[in-house]
Design a protein around this nucleic acid. Structure first.
Lengths: 175, 175
DNA sequence: CTGATTGCAAATGCTTTGCACGCCA
DNA sequence: TGGCGTGCAAAGCATTTGCAATCAG
């Protein structure tokens, strides 16, 4: 892979924000950092550190576990990546807040599928509720756990099959 | 303390639910279990395992760390106690869902104060949103992080002072 | 060159678990 | 008496950190 293709699937906005942060903090550009950022933002998938390491193993990108932890923390500090609460025990990261700064998560308890959604009424309501209680809202985190209607109706659903194949989110739950 | 006073500050509903669960699962009544349950439900405070252990140390109740973990897990399984997400790293437990099955949390980023609130519009909206996406809502978790308006206006607030004294929620945050 | 970054292994902190003993039903 | 519950210490896991070597600017 040629150097100039590192950021091929990543949009300019992300690259610029990273560069700006790195510059502003007196940090340095490194191969591992650039490759990890590329890997993270070339997909809109949520991930855990372990899943990110798995992705790396499947490619020619090499970075130690410690570096992965450190880079992810750096991106969280830079507000490019966000920790989200999917009801799991391990920390899950969401790379989509840069494109959609305001969104929420619905997690299907049947298949583990995560649906991101936005709603203006919800935002407005959160705002009103906070002010009514004497606070100024800064940030909110809403997770809806729900059952798949399709599954109940037909006994199966595309997400369930997909989930079984990829084991997406099904393991790792607290025993 | 006399045996019959164990549940003095706990309401009958909680005692009965515990008894029912213990009986239904073939579990046993033990001194440690009863005392821990009393300690947990005689207050409406959220707590971490460490805070619960601190509470125990200040009284004549004795239970090992392992027993505390096991008892708390038992209560969560019995749906008498709930894990909540306050944005901390350590698991926080909320004993108030039995009295208020539907409530949300607002956390003040200035003083760490946690405010519980209910809102019908919010519940309705969550319900509609889930169905619109093809799911049946099961459970939701909303956390609002907010700034204290009083603090901004006057430079101080009662909660901040309280928080400083009790160190309530201020430590333990991810660095 | 200087200091940031990396990889490794060791350390940390919360939580769980194996085991022998004790106690409830 | 049977076997659930407890306490202790050890084990597990995710995550962080100290340190020496390496690399970016």
């Amino acid at each position: 892979m040629k150097f100039l293709e590192y950021f091929s699937e990543m949009n300019d906005f992300i690259r610029q924000k990273l560069d700006a942060y790195v510059a502003s903090q007196g940090l340095r550009q490194t191969k591992q950092r650039n490759e990890l950022v590329e890997k993270i933002f070339s997909s809109s998938e949520h991930f855990t550190i372990e899943e990110l390491l798995d992705r790396l193993r499947k490619t020619d990108i090499k970075a130690s576990r410690a570096t992965v932890y450190r880079t992810v923390k750096l991106l969280v500090d830079a507000e490019m990546l966000f920790e989200i609460d999917l009801g799991e025990d391990v920390t899950t990261y969401d790379p989509n807040f840069m494109e959609n700064p305001v969104h929420n998560h619905l997690v299907c308890v049947d298949c583990g599928k995560v649906v991101e959604f936005e709603d203006n009424h919800l935002e407005l309501l959160n705002d009103c509720l906070s002010r009514r209680m004497g606070f100024r809202p800064v940030k909110k985190s809403l997770r809806i756990e729900a059952c798949c209607e399709k599954l109940r109706a037909s006994g199966t659903c595309a997400n369930l099959i997909q989930a079984r194949v990829t084991q997406k989110r099904l393991p790792n739950r607290k025993k």
